[in-house]
Amino acid sequence: MGLLLCKWFLPLWISAVHPFYLSVTEIRHNAPRKTLEISCRIFSDDLENALKKHYSTSFDIVRPQNRPAVDTMIAQYIGRHLQIKADGKPLSLRYLGYRIEEDATWCFLEIAGVPDVKKLDLRNDMLYKEHATQSHMIHAIVNNKRQSTKIDNPNATAGFSF
């Protein structure tokens, strides 16, 4: 009986003690609008804790008392930790806002003035300072062609060719 308990409950206990750290970033080229539409799904508690540490402040990301201040912190944090180039040209992210969905925060961004994309390069080191095992799933969709990759801390770069 003891061996059976260890077989079933030890993995559950280990996963509770050692959570996984994963975000998902999707970059979609909208050719008619000549934009890149970006969404980042980040566990809310991880993002909130990183922002609290980075800005030496306290707040609740789910029910913020000052939503504009939280939006500013998120925009600045993502701007420092996510850089995107299209065809070798560095691009400027425009933060649009965030939405809470269950245990995740969805952050929405846009890059204007991108009529065509042949190559996307990015650097994403969000939460790397906070979590040595942080990983990022990255999806890029251009001309209805989807490519995906995963990067793990400390690797922060990925590239896609279309």
Rank of each mutant, 00 (worst) to 15 (best):
A31H: 15
P32S: 07
R33G: 06
K34D: 11
T35S: 14
T35C: 10
L36E: 10
E37Y: 01
E37W: 00
E37C: 11
I38Q: 05
I38K: 03
S39N: 13
S39Y: 05
C40T: 03
R41V: 02
R41N: 09
R41G: 01
I42S: 02
I42K: 01
I42W: 00
F43C: 09
S44E: 10
S44G: 12
D45N: 12
D45Y: 06
D45H: 12
N49C: 07
N49W: 02
L51P: 03
L51Q: 11
K52S: 05
K52A: 06
K53Q: 10
H54G: 06
Y55L: 04
Y55A: 09
S56H: 15
T57I: 11
S58F: 13
S58N: 12
S58C: 07
F59K: 15
F59Y: 14
V62N: 09
R63P: 00
R63I: 03
P64G: 06
P64E: 06
Q65Y: 10
R67T: 12
P68S: 12
A69T: 09
A69S: 12
V70H: 01
T72Y: 03
T72K: 09
M73Q: 13
M73D: 02
A75L: 08
A75S: 14
Q76A: 11
Y77W: 14
Y77M: 06
H81R: 09
L82Y: 05
Q83K: 15
Q83I: 04
I84E: 11
D87S: 09
G88P: 13
K89E: 12
K89F: 00
S92Q: 14
S92Y: 02
S92G: 07
L93W: 04
L93P: 06
R94D: 05
Y95G: 05
Y95D: 06
L96H: 07
G97L: 10
Y98N: 04
R99D: 13
E101V: 00
E101K: 06
E101D: 14
E101M: 07
E101L: 07
E102G: 03
E102C: 04
E102A: 10
D103F: 04
A104T: 11
W106V: 06
C107E: 02
F108K: 13
F108H: 09
F108D: 15
L109N: 05
L109P: 03
E110F: 01
E110I: 11
E110R: 15
I111P: 07
A112Q: 12
G113Q: 08
G113A: 09
V114T: 08
D116I: 00
V117W: 08
V117I: 13
V117S: 12
K118G: 13
K118S: 12
K119E: 15
L120N: 08
D121P: 02
L122K: 05
N124D: 11
N124P: 04
